[in-house]
Design a protein around this nucleic acid. Structure first.
Length: 470
RNA sequence: GUCCCCAUCGUCUAGCCUGGCCUAGGACGCCGGCCUUUCAAGCCGGCAACACGGGUUCAAAUCCCGUUGGGGACGCCA
């Protein structure tokens, strides 16, 4: 059996979006599953729209997601001579012809056809003109077969049959000398030894156009697998108006790469009822027979749930590392003012159960890492009242002698105050919480105090008392 | 308009190929309860789907045909 070779071939015209990442992921999984090669190829034959920044964004996005490639990135713009040579070959063999219709003329004719409700395909008026060396700007068109059928055996959708009569004579070389997608993709897939073309559903109609090109060039035809589209909530193609579509945006919103990857792999693929997959799991279990053939709606809530799961399950140390940039973004200074007992890592276990994203988690972590802490005035108004001040004050005083400063030693002190002042835990814990963290929600109150340590606990209690007094 | 693809809870899906085990399972979300020092988490429970119509068959979510609906493509973009 020959080695599996697949590729992800994005055009560098913008950021890497979730649909692209999923295509890359499925290719990568298939390669890893079969011990094959995953190749990254940049399809930048449109020199007007391709940018280096976009290439960098794609590369960074894939790296962030943990997808590594075995070859590339190859850039088609560096292989232009190759495509021109092959195009020339097709012309010499009568499989291609020069077309002098201008883009404007073509556009006009398309509009007319549309208005009349006719087929939009090229009318073939240059097909039999036999132009050999046109003086005016000319594009080279592939002479597509017009009779019979082209059958594509798709690994996901099964047999797809097309009447060749609907095939366009597609342009393979632009009048500026640059190849078009359909030519370069066929040549590269063949020369790079691609065995399986795994790409989005939006390419199914390209398959019957490319198959004859493979054949005309005397290349073996690869196998095809067309992945279902990812749709927005209104079932139209996923776009910006449905919310974030770029991988970078999810990174910035505090999603773990593993969570996004896990979400994406389940969008169109399943393995029984399993929802959570380690990378190892995905590689071991991935197969096309359980790839869905219908489109899927992107569901941000489920992604968020998965993200929370990964935050909960992740190693504290790793979560702390991932969290750091988000903390810094919120003003935390590494050499900062407060050193929590045990560092960020010590705080992580107490917040990981609650956080849905790293952004949220960073925000909740701040009270343990910075001083002074921001006070939520609404919370202060509600809980830091003159009525509770005496109890708070009593607690602040008594806590000064507590040693060591742990739940076990703090609990009796607090319980005694509850008894003396006829308070329920709930009535006292909330004001205490607001005093210590500046907000109404936090980990358990004893955990909060342990995290802060005695000095900071007292300092914040005193500040809260001042706040009430003023 | 033409061509291609698709169709199970709101969403992701299992089941479909190899009809009966399906009074259709799981997950997210939603609703309710429990737990509780807050917010979460967790646990328990609930709502909720085989698009429609014909066939085939003793039997259809599963096979066939049609209808409807949705998506995609129709570029000197990829």
């Amino acid at each position: 059996m020959t080695e599996v070779r697949v590729r992800f071939a994005p055009s560098p015209t913008g950021h890497l979006h979730v649909g692209g990442l999923r295509t890359a992921l499925f290719n990568w999984l298939f390669a890893r599953r079969h011990g094959g090669k995953f190749i990254l190829r940049i399809e930048d034959t449109d020199r007007d729209r391709s940018t280096d920044a976009a290439i960098e964004a794609i590369v960074n996005g894939l790296r962030w997601a943990g997808l590594d490639w075995d070859e590339g990135p190859h850039r088609q713009s560096e292989r232009l001579e190759l495509y021109r040579e092959k195009a020339r070959e097709l012309f010499e063999r009568g499989r291609a012809y020069w077309c002098v219709c201008t883009p404007e003329e073509l556009e006009t004719r398309r509009k007319e056809a549309q208005a009349k409700g006719e087929s939009l395909k090229y009318d073939g008026r240059c097909r039999e003109r036999g132009l050999t060396a046109p003086a005016e700007p000319a594009a080279l068109r592939f002479r597509s077969p017009q009779e019979g059928q082209t059958v594509v055996e798709d690994l996901i959708k099964g047999t797809i049959t097309f009447d060749n009569a609907v095939l366009d004579d597609l342009i393979i070389l632009r009048s500026n000398g640059y190849p078009t997608y359909n030519l370069s993709v066929v040549i590269d897939d063949a020369l790079m030894g691609i065995t399986h073309v795994i790409r989005g559903d939006d390419h199914v109609n390209n398959a019957p156009r490319q198959v004859p090109l493979f054949e005309a060039l005397e290349y073996p035809v690869p196998k095809f697998a067309h992945l279902p589209m990812i749709l927005g909530s209104d079932k139209s193609r996923l776009s910006k108006r449905h919310g974030a579509t770029s991988v970078l945006a999810y990174q910035e919103m505090g999603y773990l790469p593993q969570a996004l990857v896990n979400y994406l792999v389940r969008l169109g693929w399943s393995h029984g009822d399993q929802e959570i997959f380690s990378i190892r799991d995905m590689i071991d279990k991935f197969a096309f027979d359980h790839v869905q053939s219908s489109a899927a709606v992107f569901n941000p809530e489920k992604l968020q749930w998965l993200n929370a799961e990964y935050i909960k399950q992740g190693e504290s140390r790793r979560i702390a590392e991932l969290l750091l940039p988000f903390l810094e973004q919120q003003g935390y200074d590494r050499d900062g003012l407060v050193h929590p007992r045990g560092g960020i890592e010590a705080v992580v276990p107490h917040l990981r159960e609650r956080a849905k994203t790293l952004v949220e988690m960073a925000d909740w972590t701040m009270p343990y890492l910075t001083e002074p802490v921001a006070m939520d005035e609404a919370a202060a108004g509600k809980f830091l009242t003159p009525a509770i001040a005496p109890s708070l004050n009593k607690f602040a005083e008594r806590v000064k002698t507590v040693e060591p400063f742990t739940k076990e030693t703090l609990d009796p002190v607090l319980q005694t105050i509850l008894e003396e002042d006829h308070l329920k835990m709930g009535k006292f814990a909330q004001p205490l919480r607001v005093a210590l963290t500046g907000r109404t929600f936090s980990p358990g109150i004893y955990e909060v105090m342990e995290l802060l340590g005695k000095d900071l606990t007292i300092k914040r209690l005193e500040r809260a008392l001042n706040h009430i007094g003023s």
